[in-house]
Design a protein around this nucleic acid. Structure first.
Length: 493
RNA sequence: GCCCCCAUCGUCUAGUGGCCCAGGACGAAGCCCUCUCAAGGCUUAAACCGGGAUUCGAAUUCCCGUGGGGGCACCA
């Protein structure tokens, strides 16, 4: 099947932290663009001056790059369809609003916010849908022009058809038919001279030659409006794809601020900026969000490159999806196991150094095979391997006592193990395991007791990577020192 | 209240009229492996929302319910 190249865009408004839903739209946009040899564009929809949080634009760009979704055009990379920030495109919107007015598809409205509010309340009292009542729709054009030249504050509204139906086509849902009387004359240009989403997005998508509009299903309500605006201009429509929303993990309701703080308490987040710090990889996150709203029948562990190969908008699903953090853990852990030793070492190093550990690169490379299949998140490396980079460990005295034994007996075991290890020419795991196992045999103890004491003594923790391999990397001298230290602790008990 | 959308295991999903007593993945349970923790292997439980209609035949088409979600701003 041959597909003509797609131009897609992700168009977030910089009003808050970049979250999962934005990332998913961006991913699908990116996949579609790359698959078809087209372009993926970042456009900043910053027309709401009151809600704009300046720092979030950078956060969005950083987030997309962290995910590996490099955009071909955007505010900081340019492109021939720029500018890519809507506040820098005012004349374009003003020009298009005028075209609409000249053709009778839009009109200036002088209604005050107060008047509108009162009208709305009366409508609600009468149990009617709160709609603009159309006061200015049929104003005499010359009077309207006079009031504008007088500098009277006004908005520009779209003249919606008042009868009949609008049929809008969504690629996943088919034709969506809406009675026009359900809609009303929406504001296109605000009194501050900036456009609303309805005008800005439609104009930009056309001007930027966007072929596929992927967006959240929260836009389904105004979808017929958008289609009417496109048709008023006489333009071709893009292919519309309304994605499902993300639901809370419980499946009850859409993800809210409250769920966000709840997630953080459990070590999870819905914000892209937090993912790295929490130890999640872009591979894990991409894989996770990709499959909420996109179904593959098998082999669901994929890199973005592999997704490009398999992605089609036809296989997107329209139903809402509850997010499931356990699945994020699974994908993250699976991708970690797929990384090469060198790659994983490079990714793990910052987590060690940011915790004040002095990382020896040779040692780091050696511990990777030991850590790899134990990590769910990258920062788990601290829990499993910090002791490799510490001079001393401080075991919990209680933990040094083996199950079923007392402190004295445990000390004897540690003492004997010390001797065995001290007599070895080196501490390779091949060399140290047999004599220690032989000792377990002849002593009548079970392996857990002996190796448990050694584990706690040499690593300082009850759970660690495999003991003999770990001891080899720690080194004979340091191991002996640590066992001696454990011995002293035991003797004092 | 009104409008729109959605509906397969707990969750994400495959399934486009017979290949389905419904497949995969996460999670759960059990067993194996085992120096801890993992990883890995094997196994088990677990779903077509309800009712009509079309058809020789429906998870798949249509209608009606029900449930869930979204929207109803000079916000996006």
């Amino acid at each position: 099947m041959s597909i003509k190249s797609a131009r897609t865009r992700v168009a977030p408004s910089p009003t808050g932290h970049m979250h999962l839903a934005t990332a998913r739209v961006a991913l699908y946009d990116y996949l579609l663009a790359k698959k078809t040899g087209g372009q993926f564009i970042l456009r900043i929809e910053d027309t709401d001056l009151k809600r704009t949080v300046p720092s979030t634009e950078q956060e969005i760009m950083d987030g997309l790059r962290w995910l590996g979704l490099e955009y071909d055009e955007g505010p900081d990379v340019g492109g021939k369809f720029g500018p890519y920030r809507q506040t820098e495109r005012r004349e374009i919107y003003a020009h298009h609003a005028k075209i609409l007015m000249d053709h009778g598809h839009a009109y200036p409205c002088f209604c005050s916010r107060d008047r509108l509010e009162i009208a709305r309340q009366e409508q609600m009292k009468r149990k009617e849908n709160p709609h603009y009542d159309g006061t200015c729709r049929n104003l005499d054009p010359s009077e309207a022009a006079r009031r504008i030249t007088n500098g009277e504050a006004h908005t520009i509204r779209f003249k919606m058809p008042q009868e009949g139906v609008t049929v809008a086509h969504d690629h996943l849902r088919g034709d969506i038919t809406t009675e026009n009387k359900q809609l009303y004359d929406y504001v296109l240009m605000k009194s501050d001279g900036l456009p609303t989403y309805h005008l800005a997005a439609i104009v930009d998508d056309h001007e930027m030659e966007i072929t596929h509009v992927l967006r959240g299903s929260e836009w389904l309500g105004t979808f017929p409006l958008h289609v009417n605006i496109v048709r008023a201009f006489g333009w071709d429509e893009p292919l519309w794809v309304h994605l499902s929303v993300f639901l809370k993990p419980s499946g009850k309701g859409k993800l809210s601020k409250r769920d966000t703080t709840l997630a953080m308490k459990d070590g999870y987040s819905v914000f892209i900026k937090d993912m790295n710090e929490l130890g999640y990889t872009s591979e894990g996150v991409n894989n996770w969000i990709a499959l909420m709203g996109w179904g593959v029948s098998k082999d669901d562990v994929m890199t973005v490159e592999q997704m490009i190969d398999r992605f089609t908008i036809d296989s997107l699903t329209p139903s809402p999806a509850a997010i499931n953090f356990q699945k994020l853990d699974h994908f993250n852990a699976t991708h970690i196991r797929l990384f090469t030793t060198e790659d994983l070492a490079a990714r793990l190093k910052p987590y060690f150094t940011h915790n004040g550990l002095n990382v020896n690169d040779q040692v780091l490379l050696k511990i990777i095979p030991l850590l790899r299949e134990r990590l769910v998140t990258l920062d788990d490396c601290l829990a499993f391997g910090a002791f490799f980079f510490q001079e001393d460990v401080t075991p919990n005295p209680e933990d040094l006592i083996a199950k079923g034994l007392d402190a004295k007996q445990s000390a004897q075991i540690a003492q004997r193990a010390y001797q065995i290890i001290a007599e070895l020419p080196d501490l390779s795991h091949e060399r140290c395991e047999p004599p220690l196992r032989a000792y377990v045999e002849e002593s009548g103890l079970n392996p857990n007791q002996v190796f448990g004491i050694l584990r706690v003594a040499t690593t300082g923790q009850k759970v660690s990577p495999p003991l003999f391999e770990s001891m080899e990397i720690i080194g004979k001298e340091k191991c002996l020192k640590r066992i001696k230290n454990a011995l002293e602790i035991l003797e004092k008990m």
